[in-house]
Design a protein around this nucleic acid. Structure first.
Lengths: 339, 339
DNA sequence: TTGTAAGCGTTATCAA
DNA sequence: TTGATAACGCTTACAA
């Protein structure tokens, strides 16, 4: 790295409504009224105020506005693994949707463990956020209560929590996973396996157990491998483990697209298997890469737009303890033979 | 979607330092001192305050604190295309780094056009952010001035701007792109092309022109194709155009990894070319997918950790108009033949 | 339609 | 070490 700097100009403080008022020759309240939209103000005064504000470079202080009791317009977004496709897609949509509703996202990047989620929720409280949207980790019920009792909205996305009074948004993993099994069976797969993650989030565990349960019902036994976190590398490692066996599976359900990509790549590169001829693979989430022609992954699509729309709805409505479930729909691409 | 809700409990307002003081039997100032860390407070008082705060569920109001002149701890992050690998990786690192320094990111998702960047910067002003970090779009110099003159830091990441007084972080695209050309030549490529994007951001244009200039210097002519935005699909379309010609290129520089992925997939799927035997491809950014074994893309790595560290340094230092350039280093993988 | 004045939850200053 | 008191920038009765 190369660089250059020059000494910094002195910090100047923001211009206040008072100064604008003075310059415009009106009262502070007139300024307030022009910018907040409440109350009435004569067109002439309004013009004077606007002119003065422009000249002075005035920007209303939302912090102060929030202090008086107005909603802060801040919504806290609590997420981990922001770099991963699923999370970043979600964040993209949520932030946009919030802005559409005149709110702004305060993003807190947690490590995913419950302690940092607690910290995040505390930040949310400190900044008097109107709401907290939890995309990762599972916050302690007590802290959620604290947010709730302070008038915050708390939206839990795909988390399994006992937090009373929080709003829940989740996709119906169980149904989708049963369907995954059916898809593989219909494709004629005999030896089934499930590639999961060591991360014990509710999505991971319910997907894996629903798949296993569905298999048990029809009397077939499946392997479940968990060799690392929810990542591409873990998918690869799982392929090494499963396909290295004397009796490798011919149908694999990966609880996440990312795992599936790793699995597919290792299967092709290391074991030379052809997909879907020798091996069928199903993923989950339908991240953008799933449609790349290097994969064309058959997977399940989370109706993200609808979920995000529902979040916005919750934030602007007046209910509590709502519970919305969304269906994940299969996206047929090319990693499973047609039945 | 299915759902259920119950009517919502009444909004209760936050507990204030006053209430804590009352319950603890001390003054408001004692409470302030306990939580702000400034001034001295007797251990016994401190205990009483902490106890009362705990019982009441007190959370210091950072909005009010910011009002008195304390830094707001808010840093505005202005980005577009948050779902794309490069951007999300950056956001992941920046948010984490900010939190390490006790700050919090307010994320503004812009459409990338200058008007929404202006809006974003205005938000930043409204919330009295300590700084704005611009990852997308190019803000009007005048607005940057406004931020600056209000005591904000403005950090421009990989943007080409005339904004006086802002801090600049950029990678040296030109050098890397000359090297990309050298790599392809050394691999024996004769017919060279550059796949770029219709997005005219400074990164896109300088990468493309530096590559072209380097080629011109040694007297070789190159094709430049721009058939869409910076996306996977555009990469595919570029492959259709370039490889469909009677005299297709055998060495291609894609100004972005995402373009390269699309290009590679289309080259393999549609034209059946083998990489790197028939065709060498180079990308730029080294996003996580570049190391996936389906691609193993030779590309240039932006030293993101160092760039982000530099951002943090800027936010906590006291200079203005600094300009830091970082080198992008080649990452040899398998889409270019060894020379 | 306008201005005056009170109040929001902090921190900083100053006396005690 | 403590507690009053005065800001900070805004909104909102209430009065003019």
């Amino acid at each position: 790295m190369t660089g250059s700097t020059t000494p910094r100009a002195d910090r100047v403080s923001y211009v206040s409504a008072n100064e604008v008022a003075e310059r415009a020759g009106v009262s502070r309240s007139a300024v307030s009224r022009t910018f907040s939209g409440a109350g009435s103000v004569a067109p002439a005064t309004r013009r004077k105020v606007l002119k003065a504000a422009e000249e002075l470079g005035y920007h209303a202080n939302l912090l102060a506005r929030g202090l008086v009791g107005e909603p802060s317009r801040i919504v806290c977004l609590i997420a981990a693994d922001v770099g991963q496709p699923y999370h970043s897609a979600m964040i993209d949509k949520v932030t946009r949707q919030l802005q559409l509703h005149g709110k702004v996202a305060m993003m807190i990047n947690t490590a995913g463990d419950d302690d940092s989620v607690s910290q995040a929720l505390r930040q949310s409280l400190h900044f008097r956020a109107e709401a907290s949207v939890v995309l990762s980790g599972s916050p302690p019920a007590k802290l959620v209560q604290s947010c709730l009792s302070n008038g915050q909205r708390v939206v839990l996305v795909n988390r399994d929590d006992d937090a009373e009074g929080a709003e829940r948004i989740r996709i119906d993993n169980a149904t989708a996973c049963r369907e995954a099994l059916a898809l593989l069976r219909r494709a004629g797969c005999k030896r089934l396996a499930c590639v999961s993650s060591q991360a014990r989030t509710s999505s991971m565990t319910t997907r894996e157990s629903a798949f296993a349960a569905a298999a048990a019902e029809i009397g077939v036994e499946i392997d479940v491998v968990r060799v690392g976190p929810t990542s591409y590398d873990t998918g690869q490692e799982a392929a090494r483990v499963l396909l290295g066996r004397s009796n490798p599976p011919d149908g694999v359900f990966c609880v996440t697209d990312l795992l599936a990509f790793g699995f597919i790549d290792a299967a092709r590169t290391i074991f030379g298997v052809e997909i879907p001829r020798d091996l069928c693979v199903i993923g989950f989430d339908d991240v953008p890469q799933a449609r790349w022609s290097g994969y064309e992954l058959t997977t399940f699509r989370q109706p993200m737009d609808e979920m995000v729309a529902r979040i916005a709805e919750i934030l602007t409505s007046d209910t509590s303890g709502s519970d919305s479930a969304f269906e994940a729909l299969p996206v047929w691409r090319k990693t499973v033979r047609m039945g």
